[in-house]
Design a protein around this nucleic acid. Structure first.
Lengths: 163, 163
DNA sequence: GCTTGACTTAAAGTTAAGTTGAAGTTGTAG
DNA sequence: CTACAACTTCAACTTAACTTTAAGTCAAGC
């Protein structure tokens, strides 16, 4: 059996990727990874799956959700084992997202210096208050937006102005 | 009644801060904010609480958990209404945390460019794989670390090396 | 052939940060 | 005085990303 044909049990795959077997099964239910089965219904992972699993973990470290990762992985060819070039395309896509995130945080950082001390913390005008980036709103259960709270047309005072 | 003595109902406070009343009650159970009660047991918020609530929302936008925010708010004096200076101290503390986060993301970004394409994605040595910042591990239910997976003392191959 | 560790599925539990709903109470405008 | 909006509490639900447990099956060494 050549190296290319090697298959691993779920325990071996989990150990080599440093994650729990339960996580691998979970990823499979989410369509992130796949396996073949033995006669006795046990999973076997092709070694090329190791890279895919590692990329999933790396992407999580970048702050992506499993759904976003799944969507990115869908761009890989499914008729053949992904090449180095295929993986690089993915990483380029993620680089851009990461750049945006960094820029956003830098903007927040600039605001932070002055905004909290000053009196502006208003949901109408304060950039710090209104930074609704997807980092902050991710994975925390429902966070519905409240609409129709304030009509800028009416000549009133801003009700969201703090002091 | 002077402006300093003004108290708001939970509905008014919620509207002025642009959040739901349920969120305010929730913050109160978490000890993030406080209120006084009327004869009839209804909450009344002092106007100085508006700033505190706004700071909480701003801090969430920075990516902090309510627990971290509570801990930071605990540094405010509780015998008097916080001054501008008090709030600025908080924002300085958060600025530093934000700087670290930005630096971490920039490191990831550098790694991303080369790491995914290359063969290194190993939990033992790959910086991209091992970036365990608190952004990625926050708010998603338990994410326990797996210990004792690999003993660097044993002369073996790295089992976490991909391909 | 048996024991034991690794595997199987399915259902229920976990955390954060709230939301939603039920059932009842308060406050205020008319 | 009465409607009715706004308030009260408490319990159950939501999402993401898994983990844990139960009850049973497979595989490998002795």
């Amino acid at each position: 059996m050549t190296a290319v044909d090697r298959y691993l049990t779920i325990g071996e795959a989990a150990q080599r990727c440093g994650i729990a077997t339960s996580a691998l099964r979970f990823y499979e239910t989410r369509g992130l990874i796949s396996s073949v089965r033995t006669e006795g219904n046990q999973r076997r992972y092709h070694i090329s799956m190791l890279r895919r699993i590692s990329v999933i973990r790396a992407a999580q470290n970048l702050g992506l959700t499993l759904e976003e990762i799944a969507s990115a992985l869908a761009s890989l060819p499914d008729n053949r084992t992904p090449t180095k070039r295929d993986w690089e395309r993915l990483s380029t896509r993620w680089s851009k997202q990461l750049d945006e995130r960094i820029a956003q945080l830098q903007k927040l950082r600039t605001n932070l210096a002055t905004c909290i001390g000053c009196g502006c913390l208003s949901m109408k005008s304060c950039a710090l208050y209104n930074a609704n980036d997807h980092i902050a709103s991710r994975g925390n259960g429902p966070r519905y937006l409240i609409e129709d709270l304030y009509d800028p047309e009416s000549g009133e005072e801003d009700p969201t102005q703090v002091n």
